[in-house]
Nucleic acid binder design. Sequence first.
RNA 1: GCGGCCGUAGCUCAGCCUGGUAGAGCACCCGGUUGUGGUCCGGGAUGUCGCGGGUUCAAGUCCCGUCGGUCGCCCCA
Length: 434
Amino acid sequence: MPEEPLALSAPKGTNDVLPPFSWEWQGLTRAALDTFALAGYAPIETPLFEHTEVFVRGAGAGSEVVTKQMYTFEDKGGRSLTLRPEGTAPVVRAVLEHNLARGALPVKVAYAGAMFRQERPQKGRYRQFFQVGVEALGIDSPVLDAEVVELGWRFIASMLPPEVVPTLLLNTIGHPGPECRARYIDELASFLRGRIDDLAPGDRERAATNPLRMFDSKEATTGAVMAAAPLVTDHVCDACRAHFDEVRALLDSVGVPYTVRPQLVRGLDYYTRTAFEYIWEGLGAQNTLGGGGRYDGLAESLGGDALPGIGFALGVDRILLAAGRDGSTAGTKVDVYVAVFGPEAAPTGLRIATDLRREGLGVDLDHGGRSLKGQMKDAVRSGARWVAILGEDELAAGSVALKDLTSGEQSSVPLDGLAATLRSGTMPAGAVLR
RNA sequence: GCGGCCGUAGCUCAGCCUGGUAGAGCACCCGGUUGUGGUCCGGGAUGUCGCGGGUUCAAGUCCCGUCGGUCGCCCCA
């Protein structure tokens, strides 16, 4: 192979988050953690990679995510490590490792960060993508389910414009026991065996390996068969049924609209009982804004003591996509722009900017030796309300010409009163329009 | 991982069918205004035409490959 020139591009399926969009992006992440904190969820950070086993035993050895989509590598010590494809298993691992569940329950944590899956990229689906989410561990009360579902719903709704109306899909998938989901899957499998030839050809193999997945096939012929298939919602055990009924009643009581979707199953094996998704059809093929569910068996799968839990993960990229935010309305942190001209002004301009920054004000200034006209344009672009103009006259007088860009008024302000004037938000008396 | 479509200026795109000196709008920079922005007028800079190979006197244009994007499948946040 001849030596390739340096590929001056981000790896396939990854994105640089650039200004001004990055304001929106970071704003959403912060807003999420703030919203979750107000419900008692404390921030948690776990490593970007874990022992591969955490995901194999968490998401399930047979799941698509684990078998085909993980970025797995071996380190120099021979350990098999994997870039996290999802956030729940690492959090549960951390909770178990540090015995957090020995304290007050539930353990409520929130996270925001990158996840990695090697899939074919398309709109709303990237190889490095970002999620915000919460996990609540140690309590299996349906009240907690309702709290979590409502929290995710409220956050998503708060980020979307009124015309973008998401839908909450809700289901119960029971628990793995023989009197519950295991029995149902047997029933579904035998139903499918009897109709295997009626399924779309592309679905026949999966019908045997993952019968639940038949419900979200996009093949019309498969859909026709599945319309008559038994539904998990009707076949769960009495305890799971009662849990589901209570979750529904609680969501009704807090005014969260939902649609029971008995066909809703989730891709990760650890889910039990409550399963939910926040979707918006306007997104196209990747229409899930977020999803989650209860995972009462996950801690044991990872080798810990039994520890019930529930949580959700929301796609940052997808919510911003649905919200239609391209960053053009992004805010700014600059309050005042210091415009300098003349050979002597630049050092003083820097000193003024530094003093104002030490006072906690947002300040930017020209570093390119631009004309005053150019600096005025730059000031507008920066989003600053004020421009502090510093030329030879002001330098000699120990003042600046302070202009309010919103009104066009301008007035001379002595340097030692500048911060106070800016903070007052009003021009001194005698300001003139320019 | 599979199939369709698409890659030209910072952005949105025209030019490709029918090969012959790389364009528009927006944005940007300068000037009109020897020290004042958002309007207007004038001027200016900017491209490995995704990359590699082939055909040809000549390739942005035709052919092959490749990389990337996009839509669908699959999967899922």
